[in-house]
């Protein structure tokens, strides 16, 4: 005889595991391979939140998401080392973004330096390879460089401002399915 859904549920959610206050989880559970559906659900939900925000708030959505990303960047980076040197600051940034975003400095072949000083500001191009924002947008078939990309911009700006103590700006130069080019400007 087949079980009813309620009986099945009761069986599925029965466990005799004892939780103790002193138990500190030491690993992410379940393993990553089993998290695919959770991750996809999260990506879809995030994507629809952003799409709805854009529909309701219009261009203001960018300001909201940038602000959210910036707060997040400041919050995360305050526990990292402060650096004056731009290259060292980028190294710190790569530690902060580890596992979510990966990037490398980039320059056109005819230029000599990656880091350029101009009119009192410093700029550098970064190519973002891995990006959870891009993954999310591709998962739900949404365009790049919209409000969700602004969360990454805010995140990087917040983190780099916290590390260097200088005002920063991030411009999206180009977006692609495999990598995106961004320009970091430090004032």
């Amino acid at each position: 005889m087949t079980k009813s859904f309620i009986e099945e549920s009761q069986q599925n959610f029965q466990h005799d595991l004892m939780f103790r206050v002193e138990d500190v989880p030491l690993k992410c559970n379940p393993p990553a391979a089993e998290l695919e559906q959770t991750l996809h659900g999260l990506m879809q939900m995030n994507g629809y939140i952003i799409r709805s925000l854009e529909e309701i708030a219009g261009r203001g959505a960018n300001a909201v998401t940038f602000r959210a990303g910036k707060k997040f960047g400041h919050e995360v980076a305050k526990y990292f080392q402060k650096k004056d040197n731009v290259e060292e600051a980028l190294r710190e940034l790569s530690y902060i973004l580890y596992g979510q975003y990966s990037f490398e400095p980039w320059k056109p072949a005819d230029k000599d330096h990656y880091i350029v000083e101009e009119n009192g500001s410093t700029f550098i191009y970064l190519v973002f390879h891995d990006c959870i924002v891009r993954q999310t947008l591709r998962r739900i078939g949404q365009e790049q460089s919209g409000p969700l990309c602004q969360t990454l911009c805010g995140y990087v700006v917040g983190a780099i401002e916290e590390i260097t103590g200088r005002r920063a700006k991030l411009e999206i130069v180009h977006t692609g399915p495999n990598a995106c080019l961004k320009k970091v400007i430090l004032k």
Binding site: W106, A109, H174, G176, P177, A179
Partner: peptide, 14 residues
Amino acid sequence: RRPENCMGCLSCHE
């Protein structure tokens, strides 16, 4: 003409 400038975004590919 200038493949040395390619950053591998693959948007042309797409």
